[in-house]
Write a protein that binds this DNA or RNA. Structure first.
Lengths: 299, 299
DNA sequence: CTAGATTGATATCAAGAGGGTATCAATGGA
DNA sequence: TCCATTGATACCCTCTTGATATCAATCTAG
C-alpha cells in the first residue's frame, strides 16, 4: 500500500468531496476516485458511501480516517527524526578520556559548546586509560577518545585538540622554586616523579625525550598513578616533575610551578576515532574539536 | 512513499544481505537494491553502509529500522481493525427503547445472544420515548430503536421483533377477576386506564381499536405515564386496563391478569432503523433480531 | 599468489501502475 | 423542466517496477 493512498483518503474523508480533495492534493478528480477505490479494495471494506451527490463516511471509514492520520503522523515524525540524525543534530555519542584530560578546561568548554549547537545529542563521558579507549573504540562502546599522541595504533584517525607547554613542578624548598623560568637542564640532578606509560600514552615518553633533548637522562624516583599523586610526591620532597600547564589549577601549598625556558616541550591531546567512520554526528563533533583547536592556535 | 519500501528495508536491515533479503521478499536482487537506494534518496539519509562485501546499518539506519517496524505494525493493526469493523465484528451500536420494552425478557435475551456472537461490539442502551427515538435515529445518536408499530414515519426500515397478546388487568375485587379468560366486551362498562399516545406509539390506539372491534367505545378514566403506574391505578380501583402480557411479571397483590378470549389483540414491537443504512454491524444486529423473531414465531 | 566464488551495482527491456483529458450519468435546485 | 454539480468511466501517455544478463570488487582456498 502506498502512503499516497492514505494521504488521498484523509483528504477525501476530511473534505467529503472528491473534487475539492483532488484540488487540495493537486491531482485531477478521476485518479483520486480510482485511488480511493483501490484503497477500499485493498482493505476490503467500504470506507465511503457515495450517494451520487453526497459523500459520507461509514463507521469503518471513520475509524480508518483516524488510523490513517496516526500512521501519516508517525511516518512524518520518523522521517524527520532520521533526517535530524542524518544531519548530526540528534543522536548519542560516547566519549572516552584519560583522567589527565579532566584537569584542563578545554574539554568541558568543548562539550558545552557542542551541546549548545546540538541540543538533541546526548553525550556520555567516561574516564578510561588510553589503552582502554582503543579497545572501546574498536568495540563501539565509545565513538571518540581523548588521549595524548603519539599513537602507535593503526586504523584510527586523529584530530588535534589542545597543545600546552609542560611546566616544572618543584617542592617549595627547592632552590629554583619561585623563579619565573628555568632551563630544563637545571633539573638534571633532581629525581623525577612521573606517570607510568600505560596510564597516559606519551606522558613518560615525553618527559624522557625532553630531558634527553636537554642533555641529561633523568633519574625516575617514583611512579604515581594520578596527577594529584604526582603533586603530592613533589610536595613531600620526593623529587620534581614535569606536568601540563593545566595542572596549575591543582594549586598546592607545598609545590611551585615554574615555566621552562628551554627546551619548550609541548604536550598534546587529540580526539581519536576509528578511521573510515562517516557518522554525521561524529563528523560534527570532530568539526567542533577542530574548530576549537584552530581558534586556540590563532590566539 | 510506498510501504513496500519499508518492508524491503526491514528485510535488508534484518538480513544485512541484499540477496537473502530479496529471496525473502520474493523479488530479484537488482530491484531491491534500487528500492533501497530510492528510499535513501527519499529520506535523504544514508541508512546502510555497503562495503562491497558487507552491509552494515548506520546510526540513522538503525533508528529507521525500528521506526519502519513500528509503522508497519501500526498499519497492519489498523487494517485488521477496520476489516473486523467491516465484518461487523467490532464496533459500537447505540440502541433506544421505550420503557415498556424493559418489562419483557425478549430484549435482554436478544442482547445477551448478540454479545456472545459479537464480543468486540460495545452496546449502549438508552430508554427514550418513541418520538425521541425517531429524532435520535435521524441525528445518529442511536442506530436502532425498539418501539411498537404502526409507524407513520417515512424513511425508516422496520424489523418485527416480538408479538404478544394484550391481557386484561382488573382490580382483585372486580367481578371477573380470577377468571381464566373473558371476552373484551365484558369490560364495556368499566372505566379504562391507558398510557398516553405520546409515550408509546400505538399503545392508546391499540386499546381503542380493540374495544371498538369488540363493539364498544371505552371510557378513558385516567392516563398514566408508566406501566407500573397503570397497575397502581387499577389496584386502587380507578378502573381496568389492557396491557402486554409481559406486564404479568410486575405482579401486584391488588390486580388480577385475565386473558382475552375475543378479540385476541396483539401488541407488537419492532426494531426500527433508518432506511438505506448498510452498516455491517447494523445488518448483523438486525439479522439477530429477525432470527429471534422467527424462532419465536415457530415456537 | 592466483583462480573461483560471492555479492552488490549497472544496463536494458517488458509490463503495469498512475496521472491527465474528455465525457457520461445521476441528482438537486432554480 | 432545465441546468449546474459531482462522481464514474474510457482512453492515452509516461514513469515506475521487476526481471535478466553482466560487471566489478573482494574474500577464500589451494
Amino acid at each position: 500500500m502506498d502512503l499516497r493512498l492514505l494521504r488521498s483518503y484523509v483528504a477525501v474523508a476530511e473534505e467529503l468531496h472528491f473534487s475539492r480533495a483532488a484540488l487540495r492534493l493537486h491531482i485531477a478528480q478521476p485518479p483520486l476516485s480510482r485511488q480511493i477505490r483501490r484503497l477500499e479494495e485493498e482493505v476490503g471494506v467500504q470506507l465511503l458511501k457515495r450517494t451520487q451527490r453526497r459523500v459520507t463516511l461509514t463507521d469503518p471509514g471513520r475509524q480508518f480516517l483516524e488510523s490513517a492520520r496516526a500512521i501519516l503522523a508517525q511516518v512524518e515524525a520518523s522521517v524527520a527524526l532520521v533526517r535530524r540524525m542524518g544531519r548530526g543534530e540528534v543522536g548519542r555519542i560516547a566519549i572516552g578520556m584519560t583522567s589527565s584530560v579532566a584537569f584542563g578546561d578545554a574539554l568541558p568548554r568543548l562539550l558545552r559548546r557542542f551541546r549548545e549547537g546540538h541540543p538533541g545529542v546526548s553525550i556520555s563521558l567516561r574516564e578510561m586509560s588510553a589503552g582502554e579507549q582503543m579497545g572501546a573504540l574498536r568495540d563501539g562502546r565509545i565513538q571518540v577518545g581523548f588521549m595524548r599522541p603519539p599513537l602507535r595504533e593503526a586504523g584510527v584517525s586523529l584530530t588535534p585538540f589542545t597543545r600546552e607547554p609542560l611546566v616544572a613542578v618543584l617542592p617549595v624548598e627547592h632552590p629554583l622554586a619561585g623563579r619565573r623560568r628555568i632551563p630544563l637542564k637545571a633539573l638534571a640532578g633532581d629525581p623525577f616523579i612521573t606517570v607510568p606509560r600505560s596510564e597516559a600514552v606519551g606522558g613518560l615518553d615525553l618527559v624522557l625525550e625532553a630531558c634527553l633533548q636537554a642533555g641529561f637522562r633523568p633519574e625516575i624516583a617514583q611512579h604515581a598513578q594520578e596527577i594529584p599523586s604526582v603533586i603530592g610526591y613533589v610536595a613531600a620532597g620526593f623529587g620534581v616533575s614535569l606536568l601540563p600547564q593545566a595542572a596549575r589549577r591543582l594549586a598546592h601549598g607545598g609545590v611551585s610551578f615554574v615555566d621552562l625556558s628551554t627546551p619548550r616541550v609541548f604536550i598534546e591531546m587529540a580526539a581519536v576515532c576509528l578511521a573510515g567512520q562517516d557518522a554525521p554526528l561524529l563528523a560534527a563533533f570532530l568539526a567542533e574539536v577542530g574548530g576549537i583547536a584552530a581558534r586556540k592556535g590563532r590566539g
